[in-house]
């Protein structure tokens, strides 16, 4: 039983991280319908930037964190401005491949600068965040991750529901042309959504880096794990991303624990195919009706 509980807790915490990583992805898809294959690299960039701020610039943790978030925000803005904006209205494959190209460019840069080895942050989280209850042991990182994730989730909920930019984003996602004709500055909306998504990605990257250490290859692999998560949750649902992440995380640890460790990495994709065949719009995604 305690094995089961430990697996469940592990799964939930990993899943929450998946969900957190997927949030930025969903954000981009929601506003600009771009499938971002460079998401893993965005995570890694955030993590490395934070590392550089701490070790190289010697900034205090809080300042480094803020600087990283701002840096990611600007980076997202630039990506949209210089790479994706020329492709508005282009065929899907060009957009997909552009993000693939970005992914390998970023990866190349990061490998050149930081190399392919595992790096770690210095210990900085306060101990009181650690939760110990019977057999269940939650390290401080996870509680920090859950707190941060919750804050972002609530902020996003408010942002999309009440702020004018959030409503613009939703309108653009629904119908670009109509939004344009109503005076929505579509390009600004795209830029903003990329910037916010990069910010969220950077933040998730830091959390992942604290837990697993920072490694380009591992983090970009997480970028691929995002796909089963978002398909399960529904490509355009931020809450769905979190729930999808939790489900995938739990399934992963259970297959790892009860079946075989090697199956662990492939199970999410088997589920992915299954969901796509049965319910392609996911648990919380919007179903588009096609008219003839």
């Amino acid at each position: 039983m305690s094995f089961f509980l430990q697996l469940l807790i592990n799964g939930l915490s990993i899943g929450f991280l998946y969900g957190l990583s997927a949030m930025g992805f969903v954000m981009i898809f929601k506003s600009s319908s771009v499938l971002n294959f460079a998401h893993g690299e965005l995570l890694a960039l955030g993590a490395f930037f934070f590392l550089a701020m701490i070790t190289w610039a010697q900034l205090p943790i809080a300042v480094a964190f803020l600087v990283t978030l701002v840096g990611c925000f600007i980076l997202g803005f630039f990506i949209e401005r210089f790479f994706l904006r020329p492709l508005i209205g282009e065929h899907l494959i060009y957009v997909i491949m552009l993000t693939v190209g970005l992914a390998s460019m970023f990866k190349g840069i990061m490998l050149l600068v930081w190399g392919g080895n595992l790096q770690t942050y210095p210990e900085f989280l306060p101990k009181f965040l650690s939760i110990q209850w019977d057999v269940i042991n939650i390290p401080p990182v996870y509680s920090a991750a859950i707190i941060i994730g919750m804050i972002f989730l609530i902020l996003f909920g408010i942002f999309f529901k009440y702020s004018s930019q959030g409503i613009f984003m939703r309108s653009v996602a629904d119908n670009q042309k109509a939004a344009l004709s109503l005076g929505v500055h579509v390009q600004r909306v795209f830029a903003l959504s990329w910037a916010i998504a990069a910010l969220v990605a950077g933040m998730s990257g830091i959390v992942l880096g604290v837990i697993n250490g920072i490694n380009v290859h591992d983090l970009s692999a997480i970028g691929l794990k995002v796909f089963p998560v978002v398909i399960l949750g529904g490509l355009d649902s931020i809450g769905g991303a979190i729930i999808g992440g939790l489900i995938i995380g739990v399934l992963e640890t259970f297959t790892g624990g009860y079946l075989s460790p090697s199956l662990r990495d492939v199970v999410p994709y088997i589920i992915l195919v299954f969901i796509l065949m049965v319910k392609p719009y996911g648990l919380f995604g919007l179903k588009e009706i096609e008219r003839v």
Partner: peptide, 25 residues
């Protein structure tokens, strides 16, 4: 400097894709 082929290759490969998509799709 620990320069090896993978990162450079990765970088130029990505750049080639992006350049073609942006300038001669």
């Amino acid at each position: 400097a620990g320069l090896n082929v993978a990162p450079l290759r990765e970088f130029f490969f990505g750049m080639a894709i992006i350049m073609f998509i942006l300038f001669e799709p």
